[in-house]
Design a binder for these strands. Sequence first.
DNA 1: TTGTATGCGTTATCAT
DNA 2: ATGATAACGCATACAA
Lengths: 351, 351
Amino acid sequence: MGEVGEAAVGAADDRAPQRGRGQTVTIRDVAKAAGVSPATVSRVMNNQESVAPELARRVQQAAVSLGYRPSAIAQGLARGRTGLVAITVPDLGNPMFQSVLRGVSRAAGRDGYRLLVTDSHELPLEEPLLAQESRLRADGLVLCSPRSHDRELVELAPTIEPFVLVNRHVDGLEAPTVSVDYSSGVRAVCAHLAWLGHTRVAFLSGPRASVSNRQRMEALEESARGRFELHIVECGSMLEEGYEAADRALATGATAVIGYNDLVALGALGKMTEIGVAVPDQVSVVGFDDIPFSRYISPRLTTVSVPQEELGREAWQRLAAMLRKEDPPADVCFTPRLEVRDSTGPADVRR
Amino acid sequence: MGEVGEAAVGAADDRAPQRGRGQTVTIRDVAKAAGVSPATVSRVMNNQESVAPELARRVQQAAVSLGYRPSAIAQGLARGRTGLVAITVPDLGNPMFQSVLRGVSRAAGRDGYRLLVTDSHELPLEEPLLAQESRLRADGLVLCSPRSHDRELVELAPTIEPFVLVNRHVDGLEAPTVSVDYSSGVRAVCAHLAWLGHTRVAFLSGPRASVSNRQRMEALEESARGRFELHIVECGSMLEEGYEAADRALATGATAVIGYNDLVALGALGKMTEIGVAVPDQVSVVGFDDIPFSRYISPRLTTVSVPQEELGREAWQRLAAMLRKEDPPADVCFTPRLEVRDSTGPADVRR
DNA sequence: TTGTATGCGTTATCAT
DNA sequence: ATGATAACGCATACAA
């Protein structure tokens, strides 16, 4: 017969046809059908103990048979919270951010929070707007690897609180921060390469706006001083860019290539294998992040391993505390671990 | 002069301290500060033309100096829409779903909609709950590769409308659907392998609950009949599972291995390369989806290419139409294209 | 224990 | 063009 919305309980609803907006069946409909007040229905729906079992059952039945679903928006307005966390990342296509996302998603999910995800597509200008926009629809924000300048973030901060910063430190910002000490990772890489006898290394640099790229580059320049001849090769953050930068990296005569992240390292690795450059026999390749692929591709990629999901978990832990009006745990800065695998080997002296 | 939040306009707000919940500065504060009614402020914020330029400026200034941000929740309640789209996927870690996500994100983003993402973690039981839950907080839902049974989805449907189905067809469901004809892809793969002289092939099967896995398997069995000796190897959907299934696949004596998706295919490929099994000289490997990695890993993976982002775009197009109360475009079913690359070659007769 | 009434912050309807 | 004011759907003090 009818397709949808047939109420088999209580009197039919013969009020004027509802205006376009709004819910089909509200708390009042349920209240009417169960012969109680909206307040009681609310209590039942929220499992308040203070309701007579008899009434509770009646309300439940009415709710079910009417197909009543509380409006999350109305609840949000009344409670002053949405049950949503926003997270802004520079690029959803990057496995690193996906892992952070997963970390937040799982942790927040356990606390009944859902994720509002926005991707700034590596556009620093969009970032603050997206962050504000999404924060407005959520109870808090996880700002992941923001590409904006420090001063912009400081300006942005008051409009997006409460929020936590992931993979980026900003001076003069009291927001909880979960970061990674890339310098330490870089030093480990350099020590490893030096030990293998490499003296000419190329760095496939990441997005201009990426602070962690700058960190890695600076640490690299410092670590290389007096040890390596360091070549910077403009690249990016994606597989394809690494693939295409491989030629230029090889042209520098480098015996070791360090990618801004695993994606570009793997892209370059793919290209090298394809054109017959043996890895690690002729050229060594190193990445950053330790995305799942790095472990399962052959040759397995040597990389600076970052606890990606853990970053997400820790971020949520801090945000959750703030949402509970508690003091968030102290900032954490993970020290990444150099994962030596099969893509690095002794320098090829003939190069 | 003052930087932010300095109310240089109108009288100070000296009401009692607001109760914990709610917004700090509301439309009424702005109205008071600008000496107008809330209605006028609302009009200004929404760029309604029918307001005197003079007043508009005053309101704007008041809003800015008070740091006023309209409450998205309240707007949602009043307008009857949230500006959010929910999307549910079985596994956020799978590049295939990430691409669909990106497709939806970009398309919906252009229309001013943000994404509410939920991951069912390949748990069919969680799926319906998550879908309902997230649909409640959004204006519509994209249900991607649902793992639930047809009957459950039919039951679920009325509670999550409007929604669109991606990568799955369900009989008796009038929801707009965007799907892929995997059978056709499977036939292409089989023709390709047969032409290369393969007679023993192994299939690394995907998640039990995956309908597209079943489709691929059935099409494979049909296509193989009388041509190949087909071995089904239990596997999964992730890189690691492919890696670990490689041995079992090789043990079947197959000269060609077809992965449920690119992830497991690449995992298996990695393992083979690692243990010295030459691809494609000794064994051919094929995947499904055509994730970015497949093109940039060496040997480049032969795969059934699915227009992932396009699935997302088409899904949004349909959902957007429904949100506008228009009829959505007709269902689409993409025919995937076999992307022959370097991981397939003539059968090794010695095996 | 249950109901009444008000507030949540905005939009929209109706006067003016 | 602008201002009251009633929804929007729910939660919650407060009253009973």
